[in-house]
Design a protein around this nucleic acid. Structure first.
Length: 945
RNA sequence: GCGCUUGUGGCGAAAUUGGUAGACGCGCCAGACUUAGGAUCUGGUGAUUUCGGUCGUGUAGGUUCGAGUCCUAUCAGGCGCACCA
């Protein structure tokens, strides 16, 4: 009987859907296991073979866990809001709601063909009002919270208000945008607008005026992780720095917890390291400098407090407010010209062109240790957003300061014994400190660092600075607050309206605030949000509903916020929503949350390391503080699947002709390589007929063949339409079936490694499935399983396989599990095994990998339940025991021959037998035995002289 | 520049974690069956060799009876961060 994968797969897919085989409910009697894939953004191009890689890997694990008796949650949904979806819609001239709908349908069709065990009843879409209700809800909670740095958690903003009423900011521990100080009386005297403005400084979701990444082409601001090399990640358009009022999330408040949380989760070192880098914790000192002939004081941040005696100039960021205060009249024109010039440069230009630039302000700061006057400069190598936007420059021990000093001819004072700073700075934090202070000079209170190691000197300076009130020890993070508004149409609307200019929340019970229809949804270069085009887009505070724009009167009917939330908003807590996707009263019920806890296994690409994977950890920590999520970390274990690259094929056209030369002969001609559609090439052989009809201009093409074949060249490139190397899973499934595709994708190599797709090896996997199928049928086509007992040989093969496959699944080494199946099936075929007990367990082992064929065979074996409810077999070591072991005998580590021993032979017996064997005698001629090493079951090594 | 990661046949890759390197698959070679083969089945396949061997896991050292595996240095590729003071 033939392996008719088409009928088999179609039949079971229909049945699984009809019987809701993969639907799960909370079940207190069963242990839960939560498997999750990063949900896809449904692009217009559909799935290519790279997309399902992670889904297949997680599906195998989900099915395995189910067979092991766990109650497995394995959901799927769509990340449908955001920039990519909207850009696609704009490019194709359609409404994003429409393209999203169409794309999702296409995705679903493709996904359904691969035989996943997703519970589609739990599907979520980020653009669905029932879903984004809870995105908006979480935003409202963040707006209504501040971060207490003492108890290290989010707290209701009311608590902060109560505190201000009582004590003002005295002894306050709260994360904020800028430090402020006021008394209770001052607070009470503030107007409502003033109070609101103050509270914005502390809210976790706040309206802040900051430098943002503005992308004119996309017509929106972007978060830091959405900007790569100074251009937008989507589309590659230039990004400029612009001061704008934007909604932000105070992610920075959670920086320490985000860092600490990494210790407890099972993620790869590289992703953890990337996140640590992004969070960028840096312990240093803040020191205050006075300005000569002025009342102005300013603070700098340094990790090298020990180098205070080597400070020869100070530098301010061009955006710093201090610049205006410190610029003298004589220098004003020059400074203003410099700042104008800096503003014009985009981020990209600043990165590309690292010329040293800067200008003197005319002011001098006073070194608090020596009283020396130090010139204050402005330069764009100092960033406004980090530390205090001002630095003390120590050219001898910082390469950037060194370059600056060299360029402007400023003094360089070495502070470390033996450091040669004639050519470059000495940046390493090592060595013995000198010149601190220089010989013949004295510092305040006789302070000296001379003779200390750098480490000791840093500590001593910190201590001194703190004690004398000259500054404080400070931890800085590179992690910035996330900019949360986008001047775009296709995203979650903010549940915010403005009453007399003060932002207010749309009442919780009025959520979701639905995205309105607009006449034009295209973004504008000047940044007017498309939502401004909606006619009904104001909030009636009395009727508590959205109303007409025309009726805005500043009191009862107020304008709504017009920007929308960014792509990462909807993807930050979707794993919680899967637990309880249809709940209309809360994001997730406490019962569902308590049962499913958090994601046990999360699979997705490592490109989200500094985006989604930070934001969702932040979001979950916030919900944890609220008591909504019972786990602080959302994803216990993370597996990063590698990218599937494309394998392009080339034909070689002889220049100025329509003749194509086969790959092996191309060097004899002057040829142009041309990409050819990989779908008309098999095993690098061109289907000439298909090629001729591929494009009209090739209809008359002629060929120079090797033998009677045209061999194509190949190269590894990104999988993309323009390279004609996109392999569509539908075509593979049509030709070989979903089971073969699943098996082959796993067989391709380790799951976490990037690798090119190469259709060449797929036949091997198909042959294996056919062989497996044939194992269950006799020559006449009858079903072969009988009630004969399994032979010891059968059991050995089977249990070897159970052990190998179980261990490989547990460690995600699917690529080595597949060969184990191939070997086992080969052995069972050779053994002519027909034993039902063996064949049945083989089917269960295969079920996670190739569910369709397994289900078919399971039913042919006489079961009327699904194979998903079978029990994963356990291996028995007794069956694996060998009667005899083959041990290799080496001389000085070089293997010479092998000998067989009984499995239970002890060291002495083995040594005795080896030393008395004729082979050994032959090798020992004229040599002297120094030592004999016996590793039972493995090797005997004889050391000779 | 800093951090992470990977280097093994013609190709994708294995290697019980220090014990016979190259499992398994692709490709290639030979044979069988075929009108035919880009179908199927069987066998072979690291290099070299005077057929005894010898050499082989990016390179150079080291530890060890024994190293793909551990240590040191170095080279190359991939990824991430990057004027972060």
């Amino acid at each position: 009987m033939d392996y008719n994968f088409k009928d088999i797969e179609k039949k079971w897919r229909a049945k699984w859907a009809a019987e809701k085989t993969y639907h799960v409910n909370e079940d207190a009697n069963k242990e839960k296991y939560y498997v999750l894939n990063m949900f896809p953004y449904p692009s217009g191009a559909g799935l290519h073979v790279g997309h399902p890689l992670g889904y297949i890997a997680s599906d195998i694990y989900a099915r395995y866990k189910r067979l092991k008796g766990f109650n497995v949650l394995n959901p799927m949904g769509y990340d449908a809001y955001g920039l990519p979806a909207e850009q696609y819609a704009i490019q194709t001239g359609q409404h994003p709601a429409k393209t999203t709908e169409v794309n999702i349908k296409r995705y679903r069709e493709q996904l359904d063909k691969i035989g996943f065990s997703f519970d589609w009843d739990r599907e979520v879409r980020t653009c669905d009002p029932n879903y984004y209700h809870w995105t908006q809800w979480a935003f409202e909670k963040m707006f209504g919270s501040f971060y207490c740095t003492k108890c290290q958690k989010a707290q209701p903003i009311d608590k902060l208000v109560a505190r201000f009423e009582e004590k003002g900011t005295e002894g306050l521990h709260a994360a904020c945008s800028e430090e402020r100080a006021f008394t209770a009386d001052e607070w009470k005297a503030m107007t409502e607008a003033e109070k609101e403005e103050v509270l914005m400084n502390y809210r976790l979701a706040y309206l802040g005026e900051t430098m943002v990444n503005w992308c004119p082409k996309l017509g929106t601001v972007l978060a830091n992780d959405e900007v790569v090399d100074g251009v937008s990640e989507r589309g590659g358009y230039p990004v400029v720095q612009k001061r704008m009022k934007q909604w932000c999330l105070r992610v920075s408040a959670y920086a320490q917890r985000l860092l600490d949380g990494l210790e407890a989760i099972d993620w790869s070192d590289s992703i953890k390291e990337t996140q640590r880098n992004w969070i960028g914790r840096s312990e240093g000192t803040e020191m205050t400098f006075a300005v000569k002939d002025s009342d102005v004081k300013f603070t700098i941040f340094t990790t090298r407090a020990d180098t205070i005696f080597g400070v020869t100039f100070m530098v301010l960021a061009p955006e710093s407010e201090l610049v205006a205060q410190l610029t003298t009249d004589a220098q004003r024109a020059e400074v203003e010209a410099y700042i104008e010039a800096t503003k014009k440069r985009t981020e990209r230009e600043r990165i590309a062109d690292r010329r040293v630039t800067g200008v003197f302000t005319g002011s001098y700061a006073v070194n608090p240790f020596t009283g020396d006057a130090i010139p204050v400069w402005v330069s764009d190598y100092v960033l406004a957003g980090y530390g205090t936007g001002a630095i003390m420059a120590v050219p001898a021990h910082d390469s950037r300061d060194y370059a600056f000093a060299r360029h402007f001819n400023l003094p360089i004072i070495p502070l470390i014994e033996g450091a040669d700073v004639s050519e470059e700075s000495f940046d390493a934090k090592e060595g013995i400190v000198m010149n601190s202070p220089a010989a013949g000079k004295t510092a305040i209170d006789g302070f000296s660092l001379n003779g200390l190691t750098v480490k000791e000197a840093i500590a001593a300076t910190k201590h001194f600075v703190t004690e004398k009130g000259m500054g404080r020890v400070k931890v800085n993070f590179r992690l910035r607050d996330a900019i949360f508004s986008r001047q775009r149409y296709w995203g979650e609307p903010f549940p915010v309206y403005y009453q007399n200019g003060i932002p207010r929340l749309v009442p919780e019970d009025c959520l979701p605030l639905e995205l309105p229809e607009v006449s034009r949804f295209l973004p504008t270069e000047t940044g007017e949000p498309p939502l401004g085009n909606a006619t009904r887009w104001a909030w009636d505070t009395e009727a508590r509903c959205v109303t007409d724009n025309s009726r805005i009167d500043g009191q009862k009917v107020c304008p709504l916020e017009l920007s929308t939330m960014p792509g990462f908003a909807g993807s930050s807590a979707y794993y919680l929503r899967y637990m309880d996707p249809t709940n209309n009263t809360c994001l997730v019920s406490p019962e569902a949350d308590k049962y499913w806890q958090n994601v046990d296994l999360y699979i997705g690409g490592s490109e989200h390391a500094t985006g989604h994977l930070i934001y969702s950890r932040f979001w979950n920590k916030f919900l944890f503080d609220l008591g909504v999520s019972c786990q602080e970390e959302p994803f216990k274990k993370l597996v990063n699947q590698g990218m599937i690259q494309g394998r392009s094929n080339f034909v070689y056209r002889i220049k100025d002709t329509n003749t194509f030369v086969s790959h092996g002969l191309k060097d004899q001609y002057d040829v142009t390589p041309i990409h050819v559609d990989v779908n008309i090439v098999q095993n690098d052989r061109l289907d000439i007929k298909a090629f001729k009809s591929w494009r009209p201009e090739y209809a008359t093409a002629e060929f120079v063949l090797e033998g009677d074949q045209y061999i194509c060249g190949w190269a590894i490139e990104k999988m993309s339409k323009s390279m004609y190397n996109v392999v569509n899973p539908d075509m593979i499934i049509d030709k070989y079936g979903a089971d073969t595709l699943r098996l082959y994708e796993m067989f391709l190599g380790p799951i976490n490694q990037s690798k090119p797709w190469d259709s060449n090896g797929i036949d091997g996997c198909f042959r294996f499935l056919r062989k497996t199928w044939n194992l269950y049928f006799d020559k006449a086509g009858g079903f072969a399983a009988t009630d004969t007992a399994a032979t010891p040989e059968n059991l050995k093969t089977l249990h070897k396989l159970i052990k190998k496959v179980t261990e490989d699944i547990e460690t995600f080494s699917y690529n080595t599990a597949v060969p184990a199946f191939m070997i086992a099936v080969g052995e069972l075929a050779a053994q002519k095994c027909t034993s039902r007990e063996v064949l049945e367990q083989l089917v269960v082992l295969m079920a996670p990998f190739t569910p369709h064929i397994a289900e078919e065979l399971w039913h042919l074996l006489g079961h009327d339940t699904t194979v998903c409810d079978a029990k994963w077999p356990e291996w028995n070591e007794d069956y694996l025991k060998e009667d005899s072991v083959t041990m290799s005998v080496s001389f000085n580590g070089k293997t010479r021959f092998t000998l067989d021993f009984p499995a239970d032979a002890d060291k002495a017996a083995v040594e005795n037998a080896v030393m008395n064997s004729p082979q050994t005698a032959k090798y020992l001629e004229g040599k002297q035995v120094v030592k004999v090493i016996v590793v039972p079951g493995k090797i005997v090594n004889i050391v000779v002289k």
